[in-house]
């Protein structure tokens, strides 16, 4: 009995006191401790039941049962630990995700704002351009009109030129070369007539009906 207790105390103390126990995996420790407790409880039971020998058997049995209980506990702890690990991982993932998401969304917002700015600028450009376009179209139309008018004028002038050229050609054909002689003759005849009129003393015998209108 004392021996068992001593052993147990030593084990417990050692485990408790020595951080080195921590290095042994907690699972192993749990199971070991469980076994220890079981052994003690078993021993107690054995002692209670069977004296000194019983305690040893009881302890052995107890250790086995304790080990089983320890195992159970270890399993449960394991489960919890796994769950915690899982949750922690999830939490970390989600945190990470959210962090990324926030940054991404911020960027998206920026992008949207930027795009809207672009859109506004483009619209302004378009509006201005429309004005320019209108001005150009008007200029183009006025030029076209000038060209059409010019064409009409040109046609008129060309026709007029044709007519005048034809007339001039005709003129050249039918007009005689300078004949100053005829000029002199006409002047002489007119002068003689005038003189004769004074001599005739203005007495005329006119046998005529209405004169023609010269056109």
């Amino acid at each position: 009995m004392k021996k068992i207790v001593n052993v147990l105390v030593v084990v417990l103390l050692v485990c408790a006191l020595l951080p080195g126990c921590a290095t042994m995996s907690d699972q192993t420790r749990t199971k070991a401790e469980g076994a220890g407790v079981g052994a003690v409880l078993g021993g107690l039971l054995g002692y209670a039941v069977g004296g000194g020998e019983g305690a040893a058997i009881g302890a052995a049995v107890g250790a086995g049962a304790g080990f089983l209980v320890g195992n159970e506990i270890a399993k449960r702890k394991q489960a919890y630990a796994s769950t915690e690990d899982f949750l922690d991982a999830e939490i970390a993932n989600t945190q990470e995700y959210n962090k990324t998401a926030i940054a991404y969304n911020a960027q998206l917002s920026k992008d949207v704002a930027q795009l809207e700015k672009e859109s506004t600028a483009l619209r302004a450009k378009y509006d201005k351009g429309q004005v320019d376009k209108k001005a150009l179209a008007a200029k183009s139309d006025s030029l076209q009109k000038k060209i059409d008018d010019s064409k009409k004028l040109e046609d008129t002038l060309a026709k007029e030129l044709e007519v005048q050229t034809a007339i001039l050609e005709d003129e050249k054909k039918t007009r005689p070369a300078d004949d100053q002689y005829i000029v002199r003759l006409e002047k002489e005849v007119a002068a003689l007539q005038k003189n004769l009129d004074t001599l005739r003393d203005g007495s005329t015998q006119l046998a005529k009906i209405d004169q023609r209108l010269s056109v």
């Binding site: 007119a190 009129d197 203005g202 005329t204 006119l206 005529k208 023609r212 209108l213 010269s214 056109v215």
Partner: peptide, 16 residues
Amino acid sequence: VPLGSSGSWIGIGAGL
């Protein structure tokens, strides 16, 4: 004075 020829004028050279 009813004297002399019909004279000269600017026109189409006809009598109406």
